[in-house]
Design a protein around this nucleic acid. Structure first.
Length: 826
RNA sequence: GGGCGGAUAGCUCAGCUGGUUAGAGCACCGGUUUUACAAGUCGGGGGUCACAGGUUCGAACCCUGUUCCGCCUACCA
């Protein structure tokens, strides 16, 4: 570009589109597989579940934050393995489709439903890709994966087969967590605890000997499922009940009394009704004490025939009916409102129930210690997030149930013998298979010789696939040598960036799988981002309607400006969205543009920044000072980036750029460019070289954050003198001790004190910005200053916009330096 | 119930292992437009660092307790 043509305004909508295209056309972010650079930095990209139109600026925030580090690593010379993932299988997508088309799984065929899911998935992927690209996310889109594609299905099924072989997966018939709305079983990680207002009913029971007993419960509708009454073994009141049976009100049934330490003497009357099953403690007691089983709630959340008169009612209506009947019999002796905590399905917020069912489980309870150790073997950023991981593992109560009674997911590679029920798992060569459409590889049941087989119709938990991302990415399912040994090169991966709410799912399950399959932790570093909050500090979400559309913000202020906002929160910190910060980002861009413009438009023909080394040209004190300040900045920025403290890095860079480089250095030197041609040519050339050196390095430390504008300036100007085809492939500027001139910093400190004071005086004198005052009077109490001031008098006059400097005792305005006073005469 | 994070200017936030007079941006007030930038620039006002104790020559920072906000976790049914 001809420097005279350099645009006055930064036209970011046009430029950002153009630059994004440049990156794509030139494969700037392509992973160089097999090209010799084995200094690999591998990222396990989060695959957010694909349902277009729920994306908000918070998503851009967390992706950007990880990407700041990734871009930095790229400039540090790493060969970046950065695939883009799209999570599109499983219940989240199904829920999205159900809502969008107002259907549910009982009113549509499996095939039609899957078709709709695939259609939405495809649309979702396009929306995501387009947003990530416009936000400048530097993934290698050629490495994209979707969790429903063939490679993912093969990987999940291979994992299933491998763990089945190791005895780490098994099918069991036991009480499981169940969502009556989605009609599927769930894992503990799919359940959230929510606060509910409820009522604690004191209900009168009678022992068979006629003794009246008051028992408190929040779930009278489960009376029909009551299988025992518990008391604390130390509770004197109830010791006599040993061997006594208790009659259940409304039902013609009686149950035993049992004792357990877990019963709180002070809660209610100290008696506890245990049912099949109201909560986890019921299940535990049922297992430990081998209680009877009276399952009165069915999979649809309705009471069944075992409940007698209440059969067919849903849980809520049954509660009303039973309470009303108990009232009529005067068996309700008390009602206390209380707040209690109920587990709900995280996708639909329906309270979960326990039902008995045959399900596939990945055993995890017996290996908790290994997972805790794995957590300790990875570096957490920020550190305190590891607590959540540890806490989750320590509190696990159930093995990981991976069966889902749904349609859209990866099928189990399993059939059952119609005669004896024996499970037949697929052979590895045939996966991925869908047992509903594919026959098994054998024609005879190995156990009973039966020739008929039924497919497993459940699908796997979506996390069964997502937990395999490091393996999907590296084609592990095709053998460890597949894809030129990619797995061995990339695994374990350098970085797992992700949001905090999926520590217990995506992260935990990935660790489980990785440990089981390889016995090696999957990541060196884990980076946990906070949430994007709305203006009022509430979490942004589609359902709350308080989300900000990133496309609009990018269109209005540019992607770089949005990324600037994203840099404001440190790791693990939530960040409020306020448009002011985006506006500030745009201001920074404009400032960068204009500072570059000053250099570019002053560069003469024949300018060559590499003719001599920066130290070999005749640099003055102010040049040495600005170079020193730059070096100190580079040092801090590098330290910050190395410790994932990107926020501080950008702040430091911005401070230097604004307050030191623009407001002071450029202000001090710019006057020389106003002189007639021919005058000061040497000095001009020196200053241009210094500006080139400083501004290019500043641009580089801005580059991870503001990839578009830095690239635009690089390509349109700096690249004329540099070799790299993108600033993002250029080398991160290393701190150079040889470019630190502490004496110059001291000397220029005097100048800056004078400049600062003179600005105050000029404001007081109402002087025009560029008015050249006639005299600057200086008084100094430090004789050493005189020589220094004489040496840099040209710069002082230039900076303070004065024609002459005079040492005079009349100077009476104290500067920031106690030994230095100045005055200005108009 | 247990735990984690936070509370600093009107607003959004910096403030390193304790060290002069606690910073920035926005907002507010005033000056200033041919000479990189008015989406600018220069200057100014504005804070009992949540509260109460303690340690120290010295505390926004360390310790103890309290309050409020957010979150994680939990078998008082």
């Amino acid at each position: 570009m001809n420097s005279n043509d350099f645009p006055k305004k930064y036209d970011y909508p046009t430029v950002e589109k153009k630059i994004a295209q440049y990156w794509e056309d030139n494969e700037i972010y392509k992973f160089k597989h097999g090209a010799g650079n084995d200094k690999i930095y591998a990222v396990d990209t989060p695959p957010p579940y694909v349902s277009s139109a729920h994306l908000h600026v918070g998503h851009v925030m967390s992706y950007s934050q990880a990407e700041f580090i990734i871009r930095y690593k790229r400039m540090k010379g790493f060969n970046i393995f950065y695939p883009m993932g799209f999570d599109d299988n499983g219940l989240p997508t199904e829920r999205y489709v159900e809502k969008k088309y107002k259907i549910n799984k009982s009113k549509i065929t499996r095939e039609d439903f899957i078709d709709l899911c695939l259609k939405e998935t495809k649309a979702g992927i396009e929306t995501y890709k387009s947003l990530w690209k416009s936000a400048g996310i530097s993934a290698d889109y050629g490495l994209s994966y979707s969790t429903i594609d063939e490679r993912s299905r093969k990987t999940s099924q291979k994992s299933f087969l491998a763990l089945y072989d190791k005895g780490l997966i098994e099918k069991r018939n036991e009480p499981i967590l169940w969502c009556p709305k989605c009609r599927t079983s769930l894992a503990q990680a799919d359940v959230l605890i929510e606060e509910f207002g409820g009522v604690l009913y004191d209900i009168e029971f009678n022992s068979m000997s006629g003794k009246s007993l008051i028992i408190s419960t929040t779930r009278p509708e489960l009376l029909g499922g009551c299988v025992a009454i518990y008391a604390n073994p130390g509770d004197e009141r109830y010791k006599s009940l040993k061997d006594v049976r208790i009659k259940i009100p409304l039902y013609d049934r009686d149950v035993p009394v049992k004792y357990d330490e877990s019963v709180d003497i002070n809660y209610g009357t100290g008696l506890m009704m245990v049912c099949t099953w109201g909560d986890a403690s019921d299940v535990i007691k049922w297992k430990e004490d081998k209680l009877d089983t009276f399952m009165i709630v069915n999979g649809a959340g309705r009471l069944n025939e075992l409940s007698g008169n209440y059969s067919g009612l849903n849980v809520k209506d049954a509660k009303k009916a039973i309470v009303s009947d108990l009232r009529e019999l005067s068996l309700i002796k008390g009602e206390k409102p209380l707040v209690h905590h109920v587990g709900v399905h995280d996708r639909c917020e329906t309270p979960i129930e326990f039902i008995l069912a045959k399900q596939w489980f990945v055993k995890i309870l017996e290996h908790k210690e290994r997972f805790i150790n794995a957590g300790n073997a990875m570096k957490w950023h920020p550190e305190f997030m590891k607590t959540r991981y540890d806490e989750w593992i320590n509190n696990l109560k159930w093995d990981w149930n991976i069966s889902r009674q749904r349609f859209y997911g990866v099928p189990f590679p399993v059939w059952y013998c119609s005669d004896c029920g024996e499970a037949i798992v697929a052979d590895e060569a045939s996966i991925p298979v869908d047992p509903v459409t594919n026959p098994p590889h054998i024609d005879k049941c190995p156990k009973c010789g039966g020739k008929e087989f039924k497919p497993e119709t459940d699908v796997m938990d979506t996390w069964m696939t997502s937990s395999m991302t490091p393996f999907i990415n590296t084609s592990w399912a095709y053998g460890r040598d597949a894809d030129n040994g990619l797995f061995n090169k990339v695994y374990p991966m350098s970085l797992r960036p992700q949001a905090q709410e999926i520590i217990r799912t995506w992260l935990f399950y990935t660790v489980v799988k990785s440990i089981y399959h390889t016995d090696i932790v999957p990541f060196e570093n884990i980076m946990i981002s906070g949430w994007g909050l709305d203006k009022n500090g509430k979490k942004m979400s589609k359902s709350q309607g308080n989300f900000v559309d990133p496309e609009n913000i990018i269109a209005k202020y540019s992607a770089d400006a949005l990324r600037y906002w994203a840099s404001k929160a440190g790791l693990g910190q939530d960040l409020r969205f306020n448009e002011e910060d985006v506006v500030n980002g745009r201001r920074l861009l404009i400032k960068i543009w204009n500072a570059a413009r000053f250099l570019i438009t002053n560069v003469h023909r024949g300018f060559n920044p590499h003719e001599k080394n920066i130290t070999e040209i005749k640099i003055g004190q102010v040049d040495k000072w600005i170079i020193t300040e730059l070096e100190n900045t580079l040092k801090i920025c590098e330290t910050d980036m190395e410790s994932y403290n990107y926020s501080s890095s950008l702040r430091t860079a911005t401070d230097f750029f604004y307050n030191v480089y623009c407001d002071n250095y450029l202000e001090i030197i710019k006057n020389i460019f106003w002189e007639e041609d021919g005058k000061n040519d040497d000095r001009k050339n020196t200053v241009l070289n210094v500006m080139y050196f400083v501004s290019l390095n500043v641009l580089k430390i801005f580059a991870p954050f503001l990839p578009f504008i830095t690239e635009e300036l690089y390509l349109s100007f700096y690249k004329n003198f540099e070799n790299d085809k993108s600033i993002h492939l250029s080398a991160w500027p290393e701190f150079d001790k040889g470019l630190v001139f502490d004496d110059s910093v001291k000397i220029v400190g005097i100048l800056l004190n004078i400049l600062d004071a003179s600005r105050k005086l000029r404001t007081g004198l109402n002087l025009h910005q560029n008015h050249r005052a006639s005299k600057l009077l200086i008084k100094t109490l430090n004789p050493d200053y005189i020589e220094v001031i004489n040496e840099i008098s040209g710069d002082i006059m230039s900076a303070a916009r004065v024609r002459r400097i005079v040492f005079s005792d009349k100077a009476d305005f104290k500067t920031g330096d106690d030994a230095l006073f100045i005055s200005i005469e108009k």
